[in-house]
Structures are given as structure tokens and as C-alpha cells.
């Protein structure tokens, strides 16, 4: 199983990035082989539709689940089509989030925001 997470830095000690679509990198962590792969998020600087493009990157890297603090509607639509489950991350390191996911402590993300679409958002 491959877990994907938006991250601020290319490290397992990094915090989970507060933004999904505009995160600088994505971590793909293979639970079976324990391998970590950090991928640049080429969607981060998109004028619009960053969430869609970012979700495409997650799907192309064959992730089964995504751990993220939040996710927009368009990206969620892509994940639904791709059968990728979205879990709500906690404010802790990437490593801790992976452990919590394995222990079944993370819950599915039930709040999908309608997107910021050019209005920033903190």
C-alpha cells in the first residue's frame, strides 16, 4: 500500500503541508517496502486548477490513500474517480502521521472545501 502526503520539506520529520494542491512536495511512502519517494508538486504554481493537477500526480504515483489536513472539491472528485481514500492528517510530523494511520487512528476527511479559486486562503 502506498500512502501519499503533502509535505513542506523532503524529510519524514517534516510537517504535513497545510495546503494540498499548493504543497511544494508530495511524499509517497510504501508501507510494504518502507521506501519513501519525494516528488516535486508541479501543480504548486498553477494559475488555477492546482488541486486537479496535484491529484493527478497522486494518482499517477499509484497512491492508495492520501493524508492531508484539507482538500478541495475538484481534487476530491479526482480522488473519488481514482478510488483513493482521503484521511485527515494531524498537526504533527509526517512520520507520526504515518504511524497514526497504521494504528488506525486517523479518520476519513469528511469536510471537503469548495476551493479558494484565486482567493488565497490561509
Amino acid at each position: 500500500m502506498i500512502i501519499s502526503i503533502p509535505v513542506d520539506e523532503k524529510s519524514l520529520e517534516s510537517e504535513v503541508c497545510i495546503s494540498f494542491g499548493r504543497a511544494p512536495y508530495f511524499l509517497f511512502y510504501n508501507l510494504d517496502t518502507k521506501e519513501s519517494l519525494f516528488v516535486d508538486n508541479s501543480a504548486a504554481n498553477s494559475q488555477g486548477g492546482a488541486g486537479i493537477k496535484a491529484a493527478q500526480i497522486i494518482a499517477d504515483n499509484k497512491a492508495d490513500v492520501l493524508l492531508t489536513p484539507r482538500c478541495g472539491q475538484n481534487a476530491a472528485d479526482v480522488f473519488k474517480a481514482a478510488d483513493i481514500k482521503i484521511y485527515k492528517s494531524i498537526s504533527a510530523s509526517v512520520q507520526d502521521n504515518i504511524h497514526d494511520f497504521i494504528d488506525g487512528k486517523l479518520s476519513l476527511l469528511d469536510e471537503i472545501h469548495p476551493g479558494f479559486h484565486g482567493h488565497g486562503g490561509a
Binding site: Q47, G49, A50, I52, K53, Q56, A59, A81, A82, D83
Partner: peptide, 23 residues
């Protein structure tokens, strides 16, 4: 088409092209 669209209105998932009409 997916790579071309500057607005990211297209995605290709599970052998299917998805069009985001609002984008």
C-alpha cells in the same frame, strides 16, 4: 490535452479523461 490545459481542467484517471466544466 491534460498537459496542455493551463487551467488544469482535464485529468486522466483510470483510463478515462475527466473534464472539469467549471474550470
Amino acid at each position: 490535452c491534460v498537459d496542455f490545459c493551463k487551467f488544469n481542467a482535464l485529468s486522466y484517471i483510470k483510463d478515462k479523461l475527466i473534464v472539469f466544466e467549471e474550470i
